[in-house]
Design a protein around this nucleic acid. Structure first.
Lengths: 91, 91
DNA sequence: TTGTCATGCAAGCAGAGACTTGCCTATGGT
DNA sequence: ACCATAGGCAAGTCTCTGCTTGCATGACAA
């Protein structure tokens, strides 16, 4: 549960979540190229790979393997714990 | 905006938010003693003071001064940005 | 005014984390 | 079989950050 907060603490990881929300099921290379072209970030493949590992450990990203490709899917359900913890006014 | 995520990344700061939610408007010393007695945390006064500074910079805590006392109030409104960013299903 | 209580400031230290570098595995095409 | 592609692993570097330490400020009581 603390993993979710740590995962969200890094701006590059938040950009990855943004990117996966725009287009779900991307591979590592797709995330890399779109981070550069659409978000102006210059992150190496290894850096993005490590970020994706952190996001997966936090439950924010699910992965599925097909041949030599690994697709990444967004899962926002862990974010629910944040709002539930400090009871946002549910207007 | 990124400050909110960084502020939430630390478990002691999250415990402080829990504590302020239980009892709003505490002083620095009150937060210290209740962190120890009710959350099992051993944090020095200076450490808690720095945590409160981070939380205030993130907009999660508002302060008001009266004489030599400084009271701390919880403000959960910045959390709204987190849920809005990745569109939680608003069931 | 003197002493105490509540808080603030700033330098230093140690651990965590983000990133790089280099090499390795495995899949698919030709 | 060969090579290029997609991804994984691990050690090393460097910065950030949480914490401590020591001293300073400001308010109230006697």
């Amino acid at each position: 549960m603390g993993d979710v907060f740590k995962a969200l603490a890094d701006p590059t990881r938040r950009a990855i979540l943004d990117e996966l929300q725009e287009r779900n099921g991307q591979t590592l290379f797709e995330v890399c190229t779109r981070l550069i072209s659409r978000h102006g970030l210059t992150s190496s493949r290894q850096a993005v790979s490590q970020h994706l590992d952190v996001l997966e450990a936090a439950g924010l990203v699910r992965t599925r393997r097909e041949g030599r490709y690994k697709f990444h899917d967004l899962d926002t359900s862990p974010l629910r714990a944040i709002t539930d913890r400090w009871q946002l006014p549910t207007d």
